[in-house]
Structure formats: structure tokens, C-alpha cells
């Protein structure tokens, strides 16, 4: 279970988050809705450990991880603009997390194959990421974040910037994928339909 309490973030004299709280239970998919500029992405960065909050606590399974650096949290994050590593192949990207853990090569290859099949990109291992289409890049980013089996997966507007058709198809795939893998997930979006299509529960972040 991921739990954030009283998270406050200030940039200079602007308060972005003021004592915000959120809880995601094991296996649950929660959507975080709200207008842009309300601090949704900032909250995700705090949960992922990329940003240290000015106040508040983050608990993972009851353990305080507020001060734990990002790379020791095992919390995955899918970026809005993918942020794939341009110097690596698709397999290199998907296997990156396992490589950082020092997993054996054969195990990494096996897991990469499994995940690429899961996101519908079987056989894409040797492709360069620069040649991927928008939808393919999203799928690779998802596979990359899932590969190290994160305790919680955070998704920052993962379907923004796709055309309607592709968006709807991917939303369905994503919902199914999160269920089959039993992933605990927190999805940030500004699209109410997307939230209901993917999540079990919706939380709305409002401006004070």
C-alpha cells in the first residue's frame, strides 16, 4: 500500500501542493484527476522520489520512504513523453531496470521477451527507439517501467498526445494490462473518460 500524508511543496513563494494526501491499496488502480497546474505531476515526482517535499510523509507498506532516494524505492514511473534512452535498443530500454539490479543476462532477455509480448510488440527487441511510432514508444515505455516489477507504478498522463483512435485502443490495453499483471497503479490524467476507463477509483485534486 502506498500512502502519502500532508505533502507540501513550494517553489519559491508559490505553494504547489498544500497538505495533500492520497492512498493506493495493493492491486488497486487509482486515477488522479484535476485541472492542469494543480500539482498532479509534482505529487507523482514526490512519490517517485525525484522531488523532496517541503513537508509530509510517504509510506510504502507502512515503511517511511520519505527520505529514500528514488533508485531504492522500486516505484516505477511512466513519463508523459516516454523518455526512452536513445542510445539503447528496445530490448536495452525494457531490460534497463533489471540490468541495474544486476540480473543475469538470460533472465533479462526472458523478461524482455515476456513484456514485449504483453504490450503487443513481440519481436521488437533489436529495433532502435528513434524509429518507433508514437503508440509503439508508449508501449515500450510501459514495458520498461513494468519490467523490474515495481511495487507501485505511477503513470503521468501516459496517453496524452495520441489521436482519438489510438488513445482509446491504448486505454483499453492499459486497463487490461494493469489487471493481468496485478499492478498497483496511480494514474494522473485530466481526462475523465480515460480515468473511468482505466481506474477502479478516481481521486480529484482541486485547487485550494
Amino acid at each position: 500500500m502506498l500512502e502519502a500524508r500532508d505533502i507540501t511543496v513550494r517553489f519559491g513563494d508559490r505553494t504547489v501542493l498544500d497538505a495533500t494526501a492520497i492512498t493506493v491499496a495493493d492491486g488497486e488502480v487509482v486515477a488522479l484527476l484535476g485541472p492542469s497546474g494543480v500539482g498532479k505531476s509534482t505529487l507523482l515526482r514526490v512519490l517517485a522520489g525525484l522531488l523532496v517535499a517541503d513537508a509530509g510523509t510517504v509510506l510504502l507498506d507502512g515503511v517511511d520512504i520519505t527520505r529514500l532516494p528514488s533508485h531504492r524505492r522500486n516505484i516505477g514511473l511512466v513519463f508523459q513523453d516516454e523518455q526512452l534512452f536513445p542510445h539503447l535498443t528496445v530490448a536495452g530500454n525494457v531490460g534497463f531496470g533489471l540490468r541495474m539490479q544486476g540480473a543475469p543476462k538470460a533472465a533479462i532477455a526472458e523478461r524482455v521477451r515476456e513484456l514485449l509480448a504483453l504490450v503487443g510488440l513481440a519481436g521488437f527487441e533489436a529495433r532502435r527507439v528513434n524509429g518507433l511510432s508514437g503508440g509503439e514508444a508508449k508501449r515500450v515505455a510501459l514495458a520498461r517501467a513494468l519490467a523490474p516489477r515495481p511495487r507501485v507504478l505511477l503513470l503521468d498522463e501516459p496517453l496524452t498526445g495520441l489521436d482519438r483512435d489510438l488513445h482509446d485502443r491504448l486505454a483499453g490495453d492499459l486497463a487490461a494490462l494493469l489487471r493481468t499483471t496485478g499492478t498497483t497503479a496511480l494514474l494522473v490524467t485530466h481526462d475523465r473518460d480515460e480515468a473511468t476507463a482505466i481506474a477502479d477509483r478516481t481521486v480529484i485534486l482541486i485547487e485550494r
Binding site: R45, G49, H71, F79, D81, Q83, F85, M100, Q101, A145
Partner: peptide, 12 residues
């Protein structure tokens, strides 16, 4: 952001 991505994937 690309370095942030690597960090969330467990890169020290």
C-alpha cells in the same frame, strides 16, 4: 527527465 527515468528504474 531522461536521468529521472533512469533513477526510477533503479539506477544509482
Amino acid at each position: 527527465q531522461i536521468t529521472a527515468a533512469a533513477r526510477t528504474l533503479g539506477a544509482s
